[in-house]
């Protein structure tokens, strides 16, 4: 896999919920090869780039869904269509579409739902039958439920307060048939998911990064297969190799 640097134009930046927005960037997307890969956006006034996983990719654009949590995402939220952004694309390994059987469960928590959308589309193209399990805190945080349903896949929403879908956490809705799982979300959620299944899984991790392409060693974690840089050897790790820190 090869990264590319390019200038992209913002074509859409729209709030999906109070804190979550969808950003669409147009430019050369040829380096974005697989769901689960990410991009690094450069934002005016911030020294380090900010990593975001790719939520969807089209012919000449890609989509990022992000939550406003700090300085960088606040700047990103306020960017207007027409603005140009310097983007590194084609970063990270991405999900292995063949690792989790023919009927995998896609388990997302919060903005971790984002990379599972393009993944669902690619799995469908391969003739697999994914189902989506999307966890949120409360009804007003829910996003992309309709987008998943529109793909024609079974979509279950859980909310911690029960204001939408199943009351509880994603793990409260896992008692069903599936051949494996893909997950992205808070580490505590992914750890809980792994604890309630022996099926093969692929997990996408989010760590504070420096460069995003394997040079600075800022995001290295220990795995059963040795040290791995989340940005370059990840962000997707298999459930068998993950060593939980806490």
């Amino acid at each position: 896999m090869t990264m590319k640097q390019g200038i992209f134009t913002v074509t859409e930046n729209w709030p999906l919920t109070e804190k979550v927005s969808r950003l669409v960037l147009r430019g050369d997307v040829s380096a974005i090869e697989r769901p689960g890969q990410f991009v690094q956006l450069r934002l005016d006034g911030l020294y380090l780039r900010r990593p975001f996983s790719v939520c969807d990719r089209a012919e000449d654009s890609f989509t990022v869904v992000f939550e406003t949590v700090g300085k960088g995402t606040a700047k990103l939220r306020d960017i207007q269509p027409g603005a140009k952004l310097d983007v590194l694309t084609g970063l990270g390994n991405g999900f292995d579409l063949n690792a989790c059987g023919n009927a995998p469960l896609l388990i997302g928590g919060g903005t971790g739902v984002s990379p599972l959308y393009w993944l669902a589309k690619e799995l469908l193209k391969q003739g697999k039958r994914p189902a989506a399990l999307l966890g949120f805190n409360t009804a007003k945080d829910v996003f992309y439920e309709d987008e998943f349903r529109t793909l024609g896949i079974e979509t279950i929403v859980t909310t911690a307060d029960g204001s939408c879908g199943v009351k509880g956490f994603v793990t409260d809705a896992m008692n069903r048939e599936y051949t494996g799982f893909y997950t992205c979300g808070p580490e505590a959620m992914m750890k809980a998911v792994c604890a309630c299944t022996d099926k093969p899984g692929q997990l996408s991790f989010d760590k504070r990064m420096g460069c995003g392409f394997g040079a600075c060693m800022g995001c290295t974690v220990k795995t059963k297969n040795g040290l791995k840089r989340i940005c370059k050897d990840g962000p997707v790790l298999s459930s068998e190799e993950v060593l939980w820190e806490t």
């Binding site: 020294y47 504070r208 990064m209 800022g218 995001c219 290295t220 974690v221 220990k222 040290l227």
Partner: peptide
């Protein structure tokens, strides 16, 4: 050497901190 625990990277104004 495995290096230090995460986070190893932080940001400053016009710069970055590392504790790799």
């Amino acid at each position: 050497r495995a290096g230090n625990p995460l986070p190893r990277i932080a940001e400053g104004n016009a710069g970055m901190l590392n504790a790799v």
